[in-house]
Nucleic acid binder design. Structure first.
Length: 270
DNA sequence: CTACGAACCTGCCTGC
DNA sequence: TGCAGGCAGGTTCGTA
């Protein structure tokens, strides 16, 4: 479900409700996620104070006095902040309960998400291989150009490879390529430095704008407060195959690239 | 090393 | 109304 803007929106929604508070319970009704929630983790966490809630890639990191919780939303995961005990519904896998009664509930119908406890998150195998954050300065045109030189596959696949840069999922890869006028199937190593610089700016721009608008709600995504995201109205290509290009009115084309729907303007994107 | 397809799941929508 | 089939915002894994 979520890409970086949706995860960041979730982080901003939850952080003020849990930072500085102490865990009084971690309830697990259904441990089956991408990786099962292990019973001993709840014991490690209860009694600990939350020092901060940060994000790395699409992972939320709950920093505790000792260790961290790594949370991923997968395709259908969702955190909700509730004022107190509420009857759980289907797929409400787990609750975090804090010393002031605040309850943070995790729901994930498709179970591609995860809730993991670790003593050193930066050394966790799911984290160590990750590339740079797209919104940080280290991700620039020169870096992208140097990385793309080694690759012969399509640019869209490269953008969605977390070893190159994290947080760029299917929606925003499509949108950033449209904004830059680059064809999604173009061979990565055949993109100039100047275009890499513009592509980096487009990625940063589309992600920042989506964060400001609370993410993109297509079907089931809602923020931690229950509000939908409003970036959907800004989508130029994603979900618009067959409809006219917003720039030149040519009907947008659609192809499948390693299983992911890819939409582009055959006239504006080369 | 890169590149690609399959796999992991459930819910929802479409078409017969 | 029912049911089969296809599709979905992610990531890992196995295989060329």
């Amino acid at each position: 479900m979520p890409e970086l803007p949706e995860v960041e929106t979730t982080r901003r929604g939850i952080a003020p409700h849990i930072e500085g508070k102490r865990f009084t319970a971690w309830t697990v009704r259904d441990a089956r996620l991408r990786w099962p929630i292990e019973p001993q983790w709840t014991e490690s966490v209860v009694g600990q104070r939350v020092q901060a809630l940060t994000r790395r890639s699409k992972y939320l990191v709950v920093h505790l006095e000792e260790g961290q919780i790594l949370a991923h939303l997968g395709m259908s995961g969702q955190f909700r902040v509730l004022p107190g005990a509420t009857v759980p519904e289907k797929h409400d896998h787990s609750d975090w309960v804090f010393d002031d009664g605040t309850l943070v509930r995790y729901r994930d119908p498709r179970r591609f998400g995860s809730l993991l406890y670790t003593t050193d998150w930066q050394q966790h195998p799911l984290i160590t291989h990750l590339g740079p954050e797209p919104l940080e300065e280290i991700f620039d045109g020169a870096y992208l150009y140097q990385q793309l030189k080694k690759r012969r596959g399509p640019i869209k696949s490269a953008l969605m490879d977390a070893r190159l840069v994290v947080g760029v999922g299917n929606i925003y890869a499509n949108e950033a390529l449209f904004r830059t006028g680059i064809h999604p199937l173009r061979a990565s190593h055949r993109i100039s430095l100047a275009r890499c610089q513009r592509l980096v700016e487009a990625i940063k721009g589309v992600l920042s704008q989506a964060i400001e608008e609370g993410g993109t709600t297509l079907r089931d995504y809602v923020s931690a407060t229950g509000a939908p995201g409003y970036f959907r109205v800004s989508l130029a290509v994603y979900g618009r195959a067959g409809q006219p290009c917003v720039q030149c009115e040519t009907p947008l084309k659609e192809v499948r690239l390693s299983g992911r729907i890819t939409v582009y303007c055959p006239r504006c994107q080369r």
